[in-house]
């Protein structure tokens, strides 16, 4: 079985977010980058499936060289080889087009990624990739097993789960508890440098969106305590001041 896992290179969840150049560029100074947490679940399940069924896991990132430590980590966790499409990931359509191009050159049985990245959180790349390749895609997948040419998986829906089966190939957006995040062992880290990390140039894609500017949420206001016996005042404030009722 050939599995492609797409990972994003995202700021650590505790990173302080700020912008430069008139709020048009994300300020990377002092920011620690990590594998997108949802992508990390997809990678962990891919490595488990390889251990069960054999085959290969290729890890793919659309990004610049700052993503290489994350690709090396994925190789240390158990991916067999890595591909980086050497370009700045500008929007979901652009990223999906790059992934689809790589996938069309290799016949992968499964294309896994996180349900969404945790930087821009658009959550549409898996659907776009499936559409571009003409194969089915599902998200968010929280359980996945493979028998022969068939995948059995569970998808989170409002108030419950949907159990599905479908023939491979598939594109799946993953989330917990599909697998537990894996910590690479030291031997994996040492052998990661001997594995292939191919850097390929992007295919041309027309700009579909243009970034105008970023904005941070308004700072949290101070907390005002209303005594329980003045519930009517609280309701009035929620209506007139907070305007949430």
């Amino acid at each position: 079985m050939k599995i492609l896992v797409c990972i994003s290179n995202v700021p650590d969840t505790t990173a302080k977010i700020s912008f430069t150049d008139n709020d048009t560029k994300f300020n990377k100074t002092g920011v620690q980058f990590i594998i997108g947490p949802y992508d990390d679940y997809a990678l962990a399940r891919a490595v488990e499936l390889k251990e069960q069924h054999g085959g290969t896991v290729t890890v793919l990132n659309v990004g610049e060289s700052e993503s290489d430590p994350q690709l090396r980590k994925a190789l240390a966790i158990g991916a067999d080889d890595a591909i980086r499409v050497n370009t700045e990931p500008t929007d979901s359509y652009f990223v999906a087009a790059q992934i689809a191009h790589i996938a069309s050159q290799n016949s992968y049985d499964l294309i896994l990624m996180g349900r969404e990245s945790i930087d821009f959180n658009s959550g549409v790349v898996h659907g776009l990739v499936g559409e571009m390749l003409g194969i089915a895609s599902y998200s968010p997948v929280m359980k996945l097993d493979i028998t022969g040419n068939e995948a059995k998986f569970a998808r989170e829906i409002d108030g419950g789960k949907e159990h599905l089966s479908a023939a491979l190939p598939l594109v799946l957006g993953c989330q917990e508890p599909i697998a537990e995040w894996k910590i690479p062992n030291m031997r994996g880290i040492m052998t990661a440098r001997t594995k292939s990390l191919a850097v390929v140039e992007p295919v041309s894609v027309d700009d579909s969106t243009v970034l105008e500017k970023y904005a941070l949420p308004a700072p949290k206001g101070s907390c005002r305590m209303i005594p329980a016996e003045e519930a009517e005042q609280l309701i009035a404030l929620l209506k007139t001041e907070a305007k949430v009722l």
Binding site: P69, R72, K73, A76, I183, P184, I189, M190, A192, R193
Partner: peptide, 12 residues
């Protein structure tokens, strides 16, 4: 790069 990944891994 290995040193950094080892440090980060053991920290986790």
């Amino acid at each position: 790069e290995e040193n950094r990944l080892i440090r980060q891994t053991v920290a986790e």
